[in-house]
């Protein structure tokens, strides 16, 4: 974090904002502000340069806008440079695919990503992955142990992880990357298929990103997350109930 306030940048909400993804940045900004951490929430639309930031949020998008966003972020260069000097990235769904090395365009042809994560995404063979996801976080995410992750996925891609990343979690319900794992992490860049938005349904993940961004090795001050906890437990119960009855319920 440089300067006076933590800069949370929503990257191209006009192209990558299909699934309420702006919510992730809002959750980060509020959780910082509630702890009296000075924070600035910046929306960087695709008609201008991407500003310097401490924490970048990339969201979901349709095929065409995804390709355009990847091209624009690459030619802009700011995010890749910022990651080199320690910026944090949360990349969700289409944004996750963009953060990788390659992803399929609408025609299925591979397009270059940002290369921030050693992952390649291809079009899946089967139907789109749509539905609730439950995933158990794996070790190696940092000093803060994360609880079970909950979210909603909606994507047609299958993502293969290379040796340069670790998976974020192991799915117990849903598809995630397509091989039983969910998401990927390299350094301070974290990719995931989870919507919800993911940080609203997993505030501990939001706090992990915040602690990376402000360079804190101590856990952040606790907040009253009663409403988030109620939502988490309801979603986790809904999934286990639907598995038990064999019916899709939510």
């Amino acid at each position: 974090m440089s300067g006076s306030a933590l800069r949370v940048v929503v990257v191209y909400p006009d192209l990558l904002g299909t699934y309420g993804d702006g919510g992730n940045a809002l959750v980060l900004a509020r959780r910082a502000a509630w702890r009296d951490i000075p924070v600035q929430l910046i929306e960087a639309t695709s008609d201008g340069p991407i500003p310097e930031g401490d924490l970048y949020c990339l969201g979901g998008g349709e095929d065409g806008p995804q390709v355009r966003a990847a091209e624009a972020i690459r030619s802009d260069g700011t995010i890749v440079r910022a990651v080199g000097s320690g910026a944090v990235v949360l990349a969700v769904c289409a944004g996750y695919q963009i953060a990788g090395r390659s992803f399929p365009g609408a025609d299925g042809r591979a397009r270059p990503g940002l290369g921030l994560l050693d992952v390649d995404t291809v079009k899946g063979e089967g139907p789109r992955s749509v539905g609730e996801v439950v995933a158990e976080p794996l070790d190696g995410l940092g000093d803060i142990a994360l609880p079970t992750l909950t979210g909603f996925e909606n994507h047609g891609g299958v993502t293969r992880l290379g040796p340069g990343v670790v998976a974020l979690a192991r799915v117990t319900t849903g598809n995630g990357n397509g091989d039983g794992s969910e998401g990927a992490r390299a350094g301070r860049v974290l990719g995931t298929y989870l919507h919800g938005p993911v940080l609203a349904r997993n505030p501990a993940l939001a706090d992990l990103l915040l602690s990376w961004a402000i360079g804190s090795t101590e856990p952040l001050a606790a907040l009253d997350d009663g409403e988030e906890e109620a939502l988490r437990s309801e979603r986790l119960h809904a999934v286990s109930r639907s598995r038990f009855t064999g019916r899709a319920r939510s």
Binding site: Y19, G22, F152, H195
Partner: peptide, 15 residues
Amino acid sequence: NARVADGRDPSWLWD
């Protein structure tokens, strides 16, 4: 609600 007729994913509430 988030029944089939509503759409199963209420993420749009954040919009």
